[in-house]
Design a protein around this nucleic acid. Sequence first.
DNA 1: CTGTTAGCGCTTTCAG
DNA 2: CTGAAAGCGCTAACAG
Lengths: 365, 365
Amino acid sequence: MAASTLAEVARLAGVSLATASRVLNGSDRKPGQDVAERVRQAAASLGYVPNAQAQGLARSTSGLVGLVVHDIADPYFAAIARGVQAAAREQGKMVLLATTEGTPADERAAAAAFAARRADSIVIAGSRSIRPEDQESNAELAAELDRYCRNGGRVGVLGHPIVGAAALDGYHVVAVPNEALAAQLATTLAQVPGEFVIIGGPEGLLTSDDRVRGYQSGLAAAGLPPAEVLRASFDRTGGYEAGLTLANRISAARKANKASTGEAPRPCIFAASDVMAIGAVAALRSEGLRVPRDVLIAGFDDIETLRDFRPSLSTVRLPLEKIGRLAALAGTTGQTGAGGADDGTAIAGQVTLRRSTQSSSAPRN
Amino acid sequence: MAASTLAEVARLAGVSLATASRVLNGSDRKPGQDVAERVRQAAASLGYVPNAQAQGLARSTSGLVGLVVHDIADPYFAAIARGVQAAAREQGKMVLLATTEGTPADERAAAAAFAARRADSIVIAGSRSIRPEDQESNAELAAELDRYCRNGGRVGVLGHPIVGAAALDGYHVVAVPNEALAAQLATTLAQVPGEFVIIGGPEGLLTSDDRVRGYQSGLAAAGLPPAEVLRASFDRTGGYEAGLTLANRISAARKANKASTGEAPRPCIFAASDVMAIGAVAALRSEGLRVPRDVLIAGFDDIETLRDFRPSLSTVRLPLEKIGRLAALAGTTGQTGAGGADDGTAIAGQVTLRRSTQSSSAPRN
DNA sequence: CTGTTAGCGCTTTCAG
DNA sequence: CTGAAAGCGCTAACAG
């Protein structure tokens, strides 16, 4: 990695290091026209590329934004990443990507790596977990981030505060009203006849928990009994597995019913994320069940790539890209961050009913 | 960003800078047990986090892999990014992400930024363009990368060599047999009765061009005349627009035909990417046309997120993640790279027929 | 095995 | 307006 240095440029231009630096980088002091031109020429002829590491060391900033996600190929995270990337770009920064497969231990490692690289800010997009097995890693993550903030770093977290993190300055969380929106979705769906079932992520995954809880409270508000909750991994596979379970159950119920009424019940499923919902639908289909004819289902997120899916998925639209952008911007703009836990940045969602929960037979969407 | 330094740790531990460095980082020389422990304690109590910028400066490597994509939210790029990320991770590196929205000018900027950050290697995933308006930017990109390679950097490009780039050492391209696979797809589909139409990206986008050309040659090999080619942007929107055009045309043809035969022709569309295909299907549907009843369509890539799409999309499966991984690994392993243009890393695709091109009425998939 | 001492490439007072 | 010099934090010879 032996590129030419500022010193070489300076020598070639016949000026001092300081002068060369001043003309080649945005210094407040502007050297004379002639000198400047000479330096620029020298730089060009040498193919000079400033060493950002050295600049960073000297200026003690890196122009880096660290982003940690579970899986960049998951469209949910990809959407957020796009927002983060856009925000970073607007600020002339670059984003450093880390993937954790959802384990807090990896998140901790990523945070440490970002801190080591002196990232100006770090955005954590993976959902928080309070499962007992993650407790230790969470504590370490919190400690890592606390220190990072104390050293002047800024962290933006999506959805939930890091478990155990102090309400430090520079620590921001972009609050997402998962619970309220899920409640709203439930209320909207409450009029549907059949039985309600929820497919959620593992217990202790805060985002999933919020959505499940919200949905239940929405049902309760509508005077309905709580829905059964099936737990599975918070991804397509989990949705698929839960869907399989449900499919078997439904088929069995149908067989039993056929003898008597002839009229089959049509369960209404709520999957805690669009990705899970898609998995569930795939499973239902593989068992010969159809949506919405035999089963109704709704998801959460309104993933863009999944909007062309048929039947169109009822869901709650979340401004993922904006959420990512806000998290990346947290602390950059003159935010107070005093709250630590929640600075009230307004994220609005939107219950979006489409064909997958349409109980009438009239095809609409 | 004022974290504690190695010097502070050394002082606290009562050892020299060198010793502290040796115990805290993987040096080949191992200080004594007692001393090591003391240093570690000091580091822990101070919350010491090594400054990667300084380490990078001193060691003159950064542990960074630069990745440039058009749009990280596009599932095609997201899949590749996952591969790159995985490869980077295995090597203990982190990935720096840059987004270009497809413009070579931005690619150039990204390459420069990566070079400045002294990335150990850079992966370019966006498809190459030879459109006249991109000529200048391409030349600059090539120059930038040439210099980067000359300074010891390694670059991995997907699909096509950078236009104008020299066959430098360290410069690798992961060749993707787009043309051959498209031809194979066409041959497979050639038996279908109706008329063939291609929806391609703008002329000059190499990846798209390859696929279009391959498809045409496949048709030719089957004794069929060349298909008409509709051009649009190489994304979902482009597919949608082209789909709309086709939908109108088909509807018109149907009306005209109804009077005479009563039997409508069923065109077979080939979209140069799955994402375009999905857009086209959406457009066809919005106009009341159904797949495969009224129109057959095939895509390319076999994007994972789109596999649950119905009707299931006929396509050509590409090992996107592997491709990303190979590009990231290029040069890292003891590759020769002598070829410059193509080092024959074998990428295999797989024509995958599914329901969207099923001409028989029997639903299969 | 440990400590000293130069740098790595650039920024930035502080003089001139 | 320009130059000299002191670091930024760490590594890596080179001596003890």
